[in-house]
């Protein structure tokens, strides 16, 4: 006599798995947005002696592409055009406002991330803007990729 296979099917409870999967999706969606807005993908130069990046909460990140276009908080500024330069000046002045010390100089940190082949003249433009009367920021960081050979 052959053994009878029981008719009742085993029900798997899928609810916790679906919950976890949805949470994972939400996590990936949020991370993707944050990464794309703050850090523009750039080919950064490598440096062995660079300090590990410990960001302050309200740090301003300036991404500089090789063509001189600047990305701050997902917005594009073209300093080669007067309108773009003026818009960037306003943005930096706005960012500097919140953290002014007694001497009127902003304590806010700025990180300049530039593509390895970006010409120095584009970096200098930002530095010049920072020491400008209405902005007055002095804490600058230059971004680099940590060398893995370290």
């Amino acid at each position: 006599m052959a053994a009878k296979i029981p008719d009742s099917s085993v029900d798997l409870n899928m609810t916790p798995m679906i919950d976890v999967v949805f949470l994972l999706i939400i996590f990936f969606m949020l991370i993707l947005k944050i990464v794309s807005e703050e850090l523009t993908p750039l080919d950064l130069p490598t440096a062995v002696h660079a300090n590990p990046d410990e960001a302050e909460e309200d740090r301003v990140i300036i991404n500089l592409r090789r063509d001189g276009k600047i990305f701050v908080d997902g917005r594009v500024y073209d300093p080669t055009k007067p309108a773009g330069s003026e818009a960037l000046k306003k943005k930096l002045a706005f960012e500097a406002q919140g953290a002014r010390g007694d001497d009127g100089i902003s304590e806010r940190q700025i990180l300049i991330r530039a593509d390895r082949s970006t010409k120095y003249q584009h970096v200098e433009k930002i530095l010049r803007l920072m020491v400008n009367k209405g902005i007055r920021m002095y804490r600058v960081q230059f971004g680099a990729e940590e060398d893995k050979k370290k």
Partner: peptide, 11 residues
Amino acid sequence: VEGQFSTFLPK
């Protein structure tokens, strides 16, 4: 992993 060089502009 990114690194940085901290500098200061003249006040």
